[in-house]
Design a protein around this nucleic acid. Structure first.
Length: 1002
RNA sequence: GCGGGUAUGGUGAAAUUGGUAGACACGCCAGACUUAGGAUCUGGUGCCGCAAGGUGUGAAGGUUCGAGUCCUUUUACCCGCACCA
């Protein structure tokens, strides 16, 4: 009986689906285990072999845990709102819902083929109204909450209103907007409802505010900081500019410290934790206020607040610098400097974020003409503006201490001797003639009044105390983490459950959710620049009927306009793991019982590209929901593993055209295109060509080409080698033999992509056309994509699963090479032959030999340890060793092969089910107890000792393990091979570690 | 610049945590069988050398009886962040 993977796999996939084998129960006596994959965005391209890598690993863990007696939750779903479907809709007019649905169907088909043990009854789709109704609800909760620094958690906005009514805002210690105006309880009560709403917006965890946002004109939307990479949009690489807009924001900054501290409690890779720490960007220092001295045009009292990590250098302040966008710039600039300052501010505004970033080395700035007063010395300090100071960090202003800061140093030197730039003050007992002294140690403060003689630590402490005493500053912790912009001017996203009364946002009550995405004719922004939802004709809120009605009914009395923005891509993915716990719940995002039972994710596997975005926002929402009593734990993902990328092996052919540049003996002939013929060079011929090696084929082609030129009238042409002669182009993998790297010329010529080369001449080596190979990222445009469906059809899902694991450590990037797959395929066939011969089942009930038990138990031990350590590649090796040994031992013994079938089932579930059934068992192997390792089968009585001389292994000697070191020494010294090695010498030292090694020194 | 990571045969990689470097595979070489297949099986395969032997984990030092593993210095590549005050 042969191993037919196709029949077996189809059969068991149907069985699992029909019997709901992997449906998790929410009421179980078993301990719970929650294994989660980062759910995919269903793109039109479908899956390639890189995508399932993490899913296979998590599936192995899920299946293993079931064997270990856990109630396992292993769900899957789709992050189905997003830009690509919408861009496609804009181009084709096709509704994104339709393309998304089709893409999901294709994904599902591909996933099913690989035999994952997902509980599909819990599938989620973020674009499904049944799902986003809860996303909208969470948004409302954020709106109805504020962050109380005293309790260090989010609280209902009601508690804030009560406090306002009782005591005004004097005692409120909240994370809120900067420009809070103090008011009393009486004030609050006297405010109109609208005034009260405006004040509350300054405290809410999601708030509407005019802020500087990243606007991407090409995508027609704003983007969050994590959606911008190197100054351009992450999706599509379009430029991004700064723009002031009224947008929804999430007060994630309230959670900065908890997001940072929480990292200490979770089992994530150090690099991801570092990324998050970096993104949060905590710095400890002080805020210092400087009074601005009056000038002819500016008399009002004003202060500049700065943040510094070096309050100890306060006496080194030589000047101050404001960001060009700083609010005070316009007010304090003197008439004499106005023209220069205006010009500079304008020029800076024009430069894109990217230009400003690319151009870090150029120093620029202008003196405002104004002076601030040093808090201690009362000396006037000139105030400059410069674009090296970022408006978005700290207060957008710095106290410049050139002797201790590289950038201040460079700035001071650049403007040295110009109006408004004093000489650098040095407050370190260090030489700063060449560079600033940036270290936080190894110095003593000088010329620093009461700080003289102190170091960084004590100087900082004393400076802060002194600043507090005179009311000019205080200790402060600053975070780089900014509040996250939450509005997108796009169609394909969650609508906000928000309508506007007099421009003030009102939440729609929970019982009217979901607010369903309206139909629009066009997915583009409206002509007057409104987001795509501005095209909807049925998009107004009737606050009496409590339903969405036609825009024509808007009267701003009962019927109001609805929000036109939609939520960003990360809204739906910031809580989805909780929905899986109770995916069918219609009233709540999940029931209390379900949340309490499943708690959080035990193992989360996904790509490292989500290091800052998804993982930070998810932790934020989880913490918020925890504060408000809706989420069970402080951190959502206990352990995180990032799978490495599977890279493609691109193939290349090398084209040589005839339109190369050649030199006429009398004049230069520029890129004459003869265009008669194209040559395709085999890999090594191309190599010879670029290495300028004489090769008769190349010489022949050169001559042919030269002859063509001569035919069109070029006299006595010679080859000009400096020109690029040939270039590589990607060739589709379907046209090559993966093992021999030989091009199938017939297939290549027939391939629609390469019709241009039908008449090309193929320059072969040894009668073959060999393609070049290179490791690159797997992508459609590089024609190096390997489809898992093809692998499943040819070798089977079990082979695919084993091979993906066998490639190397899960977290490491590694190239895919289909050629190697025959190794694991052969292993499965060999495994099969332990159970079956040509006549069918071939199993004996005889007692196995000690060797057979040893092979089995060695494997049980290794595989168990490997799964616990997520070292899946080494278990596959161990399976191979085991099967090789058992084949050698002619093992057909039930007592060995029964546990072996269970052992391989997490990795190769289909064949395991088939073997388990062939052995006479009913039903699925999925929850059969995992074999237990027993030490007794591995106990050895002898050991093959390596015998080394001066650390070099010379021979081995087999000795009983119960010998003492002295006995071993005696036997080894008596051995003639020892005497050969020693040649009469006596070793100075004999090192014997029983059970390990023997080493003779001297 | 800062932070994280990686480096071992022709290739993917292993190494019980300081104890026989290269397990397991791919590829390659040789052979058996054959319905001549990209099947199956056997043996070999780090490099130099006919061999004895030498040499070998990016490089250079060090600790140790013994180092891929620990320490110091250094190089290359990958990933993140980047005028963060």
């Amino acid at each position: 009986m042969k191993y037919f993977h196709n029949d077996i796999e189809a059969k068991w996939q149907q069985y699992w689906a029909k019997n709901q084998t992997f449906a998790a129960s929410n009421n179980s006596e078993k301990p719970k285990y929650y294994v989660l994959d980062m759910f995919p965005y269903p793109s039109g391209a479908g899956l390639h072999v890189g995508h399932p890598l993490g899913y296979i690993a998590s599936d192995i863990v899920a299946r293993y845990k079931r064997h270990q007696g856990f109630n396992v939750l292993h769900p899957q779903g789709y992050d189905s709102f997003g830009l690509p479907a919408e861009q496609y809709a804009i181009q084709t007019g096709q509704h994104p819902e339709k393309t998304t649905r089709e893409n999901i169907a294709r994904y599902r088909e591909q996933l099913d083929k690989i035999g994952f043990s997902f509980d599909w009854s819990r599938e989620v789709r973020t674009s499904n109204p049944d799902y986003y109704k809860h996303t909208q609800w969470i948004f409302i909760q954020l709106f109805e909450s504020w962050y109380n620094n005293n309790s260090d958690k989010a609280e209902s906005i009601c508690t804030l209103i009560q406090e306002f009514e009782k005591n005004g805002n004097a005692n409120v210690n909240a994370v809120c907007d900067d420009n809070i105006v103090p008011f009393s309880a009486e004030d609050w009560k006297s405010f109109s409802s609208e005034e009260q709403q405006k004040i509350l917006l300054q405290y809410r965890l999601t708030y509407l505010a005019e802020t500087e946002v990243n606007w991407c004109p090409a995508l027609g939307t704003v983007l969050a900081n994590d959606e911008i990479v190197n100054g351009v949009s992450e999706r599509g690489g379009h430029p991004v500019i700064r723009k002031k807009m009224t947008q929804w924001s999430m007060r994630i900054s309230a959670y900065a410290e908890r997001l940072l501290q929480g990292l200490e409690t979770i089992d994530w890779s150090e690099s991801i934790k570092e990324s998050q720490r970096n993104w949060i960007g905590k710095s400890v220092g002080a805020s210092v206020t400087f009074n601005v001295l009056p000038t002819s045009n500016f008399q009002l009292p004003a202060t500049i607040e700065v943040f510094t990590t070096r309050p100890d250098t306060i006496f080194g302040v030589t000047f101050m610098t404001l960001a060009p966008e700083h609010d005070l710039v316009a007010q304090i600039t003197t008439p004499e400097q106005k023209a220069a300052v205006d010009a500079y501010v304008e020029a800076t505004a024009k430069r894109s974020e990217r230009e400003r970033m690319a151009d870090v080395k150029t120093i620029s700035g202008v003196f405002t003409g104004a002076y601030a007063e040093h808090p201690f010395t009362k000396e006037p300090i000139p105030v400059w503006i410069g674009d090296y100071v970022l408006a978005g960090y700290g207060t957008g202003a710095v106290m410049a201490v050139p002797c201790g800061d590289e950038r201040d140093y460079a700035f001071a030197n650049f403007f040295k001797g110009t109006h408004g730039m004093p000489a650098i003050k040095n407050i370190f007992n260090q030489d700063i003639s060449e560079a600033a002294y940036g270290e936080k140690g190894g110095f003593e403060l000088v010329d620093s009044d009461f700080l003289n003689g102190l170091d960084y630590k004590s100087g900082t402490k004393k400076a802060i105390e002194a600043l507090e005493k005179i009311g000019a500053g205080k200790a402060k912790v600053n975070y780089r983490l900014r509040d996250a912009v939450f509005s997108r001017q796009r169609y394909w996203g969650e609508p906000f459950p928000v309508y506007y009364v007099n421009g003030l946002p009102q939440m729609i009550d929970k019982k009217h959710l979901p607010i369903v995405l309206p139909e629009v004719e066009k997915y583009l922004p409206t002509e007057d620049g409104q987001p795509p939802l501005g095209n909807a004709t049925h998009w107004a809120w009737d606050s009496v009927q409590c339903s969405v009605v036609s825009n024509q009914l808007i009267d701003n009395v009962n019927v109001f306009p609805l929000e036109l923005n939609t939520m960003p891509g990360w809204a739906g993915s910031s809580w989805y793991w909780m929905r899986y716990m109770d995916a069918q719940n219609e009233n709540d995002f999940a029931s209390e019982d379900a949340l309490k039972y499943w708690e959080n994710v035990d193992l989360y596997i996904g790509g490292s590209e989500h290091a800052t975005g998804h993982l930070l926002y998810s932790r934020f929402w989880n913490k918020f929901l925890k504060d408000r009593g809706f989420a069970p734990t402080e951190e959502p993902f206990k352990k995180l593993i990032n799978q490495g990328m599977i890279l493609g092996m691109s193939a290349f052919v090398y084209i040589m055209y005839q339109h190369v540049q050649i030199v006429d003996t009398s004049e230069l002939v520029k890129s004459l295109k003869v265009n008669k013929k194209t040559y395709l060079l085999s890999k090594n011929i191309y190599g010879d060509l670029i290495n300028k090696i004489n090769n008769s084929e190349i010489e022949r082609i050169k001559e042919e080409i030269l002859n063509e030129y001569i035919k069109i009238g070029v006299k006595s042409a010679v080859w000009f080698d400096a020109e690029p002669l040939a270039l590589p182009i990607h060739v589709d993998l379907s046209c090559i033999n993966d093992i021999t790297n030989e091009l199938n010329i017939e297939k290549f010529k027939a391939h629609p992509l390469y019709s241009d080369y039908k008449d090309a001449e193929f320059i072969l080596e040894d009668g073959k056309y060999i393609v070049g190979r290179e490791v690159e990222k797997m992508s459609k445009s590089k024609y190096n994509v390997v489809n898992p469906d093809d692998i499943c059809n040819e070798y089977g899902a079990d082979t695919l699963r084993l091979y993906e694991m066998f490639l190397g450590p899960l977290e490491q990037a590694k190239p895919w090479n289909t050629a190697g797959i025959t190794g694991v395929y052969g292993f499965l066939k060999k495994l099969w032959r332990l159970y079956f011969d040509d006549n069918g089942l071939n199993i004996t009930n005889d007692e196995p030999t000690a060797d057979m038990y040893k092979s089995l138990h060695k494997t049980i031990k290794k595989v168990t340890e490997d799964i616990e350590n997520f070292s899946f590649n080494t278990s596959v090796s161990q399976f191979m060793i085991c099967v090789n040994e058992l084949a050698q031992q002619k093992c057909h013994h039930r007592a060995i092969l029964e546990p072996l079938a269970v052992l391989v089932s997490p990795y190769a579930p289909h064949i395991a089910e088939e073997l388990w059934n062939a052995l006479g068992h009913e039903g699925s192997v999925a929850t059969v107890a995992f074999p237990k390792f027993e030490e007794k089968y591995l106990v050895e009585s002898e050991k093959e000792y390596p015998v080394s001389f001066n650390g070099k292994m010379r021979f081995t000697i087999k000795l009983p393990l119960d010998l003492t070191a002295a006995q071993i020494e005696e036997i080894v010294m008596a051995d003639e091979r020892t005497q050969n090695q020693l040649q009469g010498r006596t070793p100075n030292k004999v090192i014997i570690v029983p059970g390990k090694i023997i080493n003779l020194v001297g």
